[in-house]
Design a protein around this nucleic acid. Structure first.
Length: 112
DNA sequence: ACAATGACTGAAT
DNA sequence: AATTCAGCCATTG
């Protein structure tokens, strides 16, 4: 499983840039990378993120609805909610409240 | 090499 | 509004 600097690294990097108390969606990242339809690959990249020596705040990445779909894949699902709440993100049944305001759009924040 | 799967999303029904 | 379908492409059996 050779590691080419491609989707993985890019996704990891973008996710790492997410400020505390902010969240983003897979689609937003994928779109920023130029693959608006490859949101799934972003999720896979996250899964790999646990395997690399790269601290990636995957807990700040949720689906387009602000739902913590990936919480179950964490080493400890509760960790995701806890981390988010700890950073000031309001959660409700694994869903991010005020998602629209907490949403961190790389295409805008980074403004290319 | 082929088939199935997956932390998604948007459109269609 | 809820469910289903199709596209996306890397990883795995």
């Amino acid at each position: 499983m050779e590691n080419k600097e491609g989707f993985f690294s890019m996704v990891h990097q973008v996710v790492r840039l997410i400020p505390e108390g902010r969240v983003t969606s897979y689609g937003a990242i994928a779109k920023y990378l130029g693959a608006p339809r490859s949101a799934r690959m972003v999720g896979w990249a996250m899964n790999s993120s646990f395997n690399v020596d790269n601290p990636v705040p995957a807990h700040r990445v949720v689906n387009g609805q602000g739902l913590l779909t990936g919480a179950a894949q964490f080493p400890e699902p509760k960790m995701m909610e806890r981390l988010l709440e700890k950073e000031g993100v309001e959660l409700k049944n694994n869903k991010v409240q005020n998602f629209a305001e907490l949403f961190w759009n790389p295409s805008i924040e980074l403004e290319l």
